[in-house]
């Protein structure tokens, strides 16, 4: 592999300065994705700036009743945090549904948001891939795409975003904070990932050289009754073939508020706003849950071998919302 430099940063401004906007440099968090990609040659950075020692490992309540999660908080610490488990249970469940215990002990919140797709063509440097090598083509569309996107993809890329955590964060309107040489900034997670379009290699709206410093969860009382369900091809240690993060507030049999996000169906965690619109104010029953899923999935454009995902997501949305409605009724 390519020889690379390694520097460790101890404060946020120092980290940003060390990286210095160099497109050939990368911030190193837990390394659970980046290091693998370096071994296979997908990533070939000249410099790694290790941000694990930055003082960004706190989880705290905000004044307005939300929570702020530091970028270097490990997945394990996030999932174990009592306030996260109480106020945003789907987030803790999503994190625990990902990877393995060892990986969660290493992986960080900031890195999780920036992890790359697990598309096998992207991971194989001998293969064409518009995301890795813009303009080279997308072999998945005519090739193996049984776990590729059915929503929001383009003729240039059908890869999915692999994060479980991101699906729950998307459901809860999380906001990403970052630091640049010009000062701090914020991006709602809804705007954080760029549409695929003709530029699948451009994945986020982060300015060049920006360091993610944390994620803020706005107050969301609805999130207290929430859950994350992940379907995968083995019981653990696998990326989703479909997942749902949902929160539901039911009063007098009607949906007062609902949050719904889908995973493993698009290039980003997919907020199901069409479904939310159908459900808000409607009776909380299986018929409406199915109608809501159908409304969201009407935009699905499956490929020859991933049409099952539409059925899967419909069933999953109905199952998870039904479970939440039962939980709310208890």
């Amino acid at each position: 592999m390519r020889e690379f430099g390694y520097r460790r940063a101890y404060d946020v401004s120092g980290a940003v300065a060390l990286l210095d906007g160099d497109p050939d440099a990368r911030f190193l968090g837990g390394g659970t994705n980046l290091v693998d990609l370096m071994k296979t040659g997908v990533e070939r950075p000249a410099l790694l700036v290790d941000v694990r020692e930055l003082p960004l490992d706190g989880i705290e309540s905000t004044e307005d009743g939300g929570m702020r999660i530091g970028a270097t908080v490990t997945n394990s610490d996030l999932a174990a945090h009592p306030e996260i488990r109480r106020r945003y249970p789907a987030l803790a469940q999503a994190v625990l549904a990902g990877a393995s215990g060892q990986l969660r002990n290493m992986a960080t919140v900031g890195g999780n948001l920036l992890q790359r797709t697990r598309c096998g063509y992207f991971a194989d440097v001998t293969s064409d891939c518009n995301k890795r090598s813009p303009g080279s083509g997308c072999p998945a569309i005519a090739g193996e795409h049984h776990n590729h996107a059915v929503l929001g993809a383009s003729d240039h890329c059908v890869a999915t975003h692999p994060s479980d955590m991101g699906v729950a964060l998307t459901a809860f309107d999380a906001v990403v904070s970052y630091e640049t040489a010009d000062g701090p900034g914020e991006l709602p997670l809804a705007d954080f990932y760029l549409p695929v379009g003709e530029t699948p290699h451009l994945e986020t709206a982060l300015p060049p050289g920006a360091l993610i410093t944390g994620v803020t969860l706005p107050p969301a009382p609805v999130a207290a009754v929430s859950r994350y369900r992940k379907v995968r091809e083995r019981a653990s240690y696998a990326f989703a073939i479909g997942s749902v993060a949902a929160a539901l507030d039911v009063r007098d049999g009607r949906v007062r508020e609902v949050r719904l996000a889908l995973g493993a169906v698009a290039s980003r965690p997919w907020r199901a706003r069409a479904a939310e619109r159908v459900l808000t104010g409607a009776p909380a029953d299986a018929e409406n849950f199915a109608a809501a899923a159908d409304a969201e999935l009407a935009a699905a454009r499956p490929l020859p071998h991933n049409g099952y995902k539409v059925t899967l997501m419909r069933n999953l949305v109905v199952a998870v919302l039904s479970e939440l409605a039962e939980e709310a009724a208890r």
Binding site: R118, G120, Y121, A123, D124, T126, S127, P139, A142, G143, E144, E233, R234, A235, S236, Y237, A238, F239
Partner: peptide, 22 residues
Amino acid sequence: DRASGGVYGADLAGYHVAAHAD
């Protein structure tokens, strides 16, 4: 992969064996 002639996802992330939880 019919087009390349090689195995798609030729690693232990792409080729699943039963995990402990299975």
